[in-house]
């Protein structure tokens, strides 16, 4: 799956989890940039992404996700 496609699909998941239709994700975006992105919603986000792409993350991958760009990289390496 192309990274741009992953990003588009993630965009919808983010809108749903953070309940914000105007939210546009970018590679540099991190938890600090989004209202309500805390440890709680983070885990809901992770499960939603896992279900959507039918994958499972490892704890180590979770720890590496410092921003959306890294998340896309990890997803792309798992999906391809």
């Amino acid at each position: 799956m192309e990274k741009s496609q992953i990003k588009d699909e993630l965009d919808n998941i983010f809108k749903k989890i953070f309940n914000n239709e105007t939210l546009e994700i970018s590679e540099n975006m991190s938890a600090n940039d989004v209202d309500n992105w805390d440890s709680l919603s983070h885990m809901l986000l992770i499960t939603e992404i896992e279900d959507h792409f039918s994958i499972k993350f490892k704890l180590r991958e979770l720890n590496k996700m410092k921003n959306v760009g890294v998340l896309i990289d990890i997803l792309s390496s798992k999906l391809n």
Binding site: T47, L59, N63
Partner: peptide
Amino acid sequence: YTPLSFAFRRYK
């Protein structure tokens, strides 16, 4: 917290 919540993430 993170390892635990990761382990229990399926229970929302």
